[in-house]
Design a protein around this nucleic acid. Structure first.
Length: 260
DNA sequence: ATGGCTAGCTTGGCTAGA
């Protein structure tokens, strides 16, 4: 059984004590991190190794973005960045095979706001490149696949506290939702939603306006599984604990247990 | 309401986040 988590930590340096506390408490085998906000040289490798995560694949960037895979098991076939957009200097994708048992990817989809700027088409292009890459992986490999992280998409109005207020936001626009569904059409499943059909379960709450205390949230962090991985999934949980603590990230972790 | 917090960098107002 592997417990695999995804968490947008909003700076791994600012969050390091909170991250190591949570790793010790939740004991995931693998943690897919987003928004580490540091170059590879700034990644706190010693502290992460001391926490029991001997194997790390990092795709960092100065100040913004940045993704990583932390693992208790060996990582092979590490890939940094999506093929297809070589001019893309933003660190938003890293993938690896865990212990020869499952391929995992940590993704940080562009936010896309404001929608009347180049940022929105960039988001849609990036998601289409992700789709093409996942399609190739599914064609070329029999390995179970998990693609997890911050998708910056609320798949349906059930995933937003105020659907009308957010209807023109890049996270809720029909184009963003269609790009997300295009991943599902490949055969991937939104694991949390499939196991938990009840609406208004969130993974992000804004720092402002008491959003956390008022449960004004969004479900934008997702674990997508291919059929092989889905057949073996035993649980999928949003752990709201870390969001309620001091000096929290604005996102909270989501994890799944998979018998691979 | 006027983006009201938070983080990083260019240390003091920017950008960016969602």
């Amino acid at each position: 059984m592997l417990k695999i988590a995804a968490w947008n930590v909003n700076s791994i340096k600012a969050r390091l004590p909170k991250l190591t506390d949570w790793l010790a408490e939740a004991q995931p085998d693998v943690a897919l991190l987003q928004e580490i906000k540091t170059v590879d040289d700034g990644f706190p490798l010693m502290e992460i190794r001391a926490a029991g995560y001997e194997h790390c694949a990092v795709c960092g960037q100065k100040s913004y973005n940045g993704v990583a895979i932390l693992s208790r098991h060996p990582l092979t076939e590490v890939r940094r960045g999506l093929p297809g957009e070589p001019e893309d200097q933003q660190a938003r994708y890293v993938e690896a095979v865990v212990d020869g048992r499952i391929r995992v990817a940590s993704v940080y989809v562009p936010n896309g706001n404001p929608v009347d700027t180049e940022k929105f088409p960039y988001k849609l292009r990036w998601m289409e490149n992700l789709r093409l890459h996942v399609q190739r992986l599914l064609t070329e490999s029999d390995m179970p696949l998990l693609v997890g992280g911050d998708y910056n998409v609320c798949p349906t109005d059930d995933d937003v506290y105020d659907p009308d207020g957010w209807s023109n936001d890049a996270l809720c626009r029909p184009e963003s939702r269609a790009a997300f569904r295009a991943l599902l059409w490949l055969g991937l499943t939104d694991t949390y939603r499939t196991l938990h059909p009840e609406p208004h379960r969130y993974t992000f709450w804004d720092y402002q306006q008491g959003a956390w205390q008022r449960d004004l949230g969004l479900r934008i962090d997702h674990l997508l599984l291919d059929g092989r991985a889905l057949d073996r999934v035993r649980a999928c949980v949003i752990d709201k604990g870390p969001r309620g603590r001091e000096k929290a990230s604005d996102h909270t972790p989501i994890w799944a247990e998979i018998e691979v």
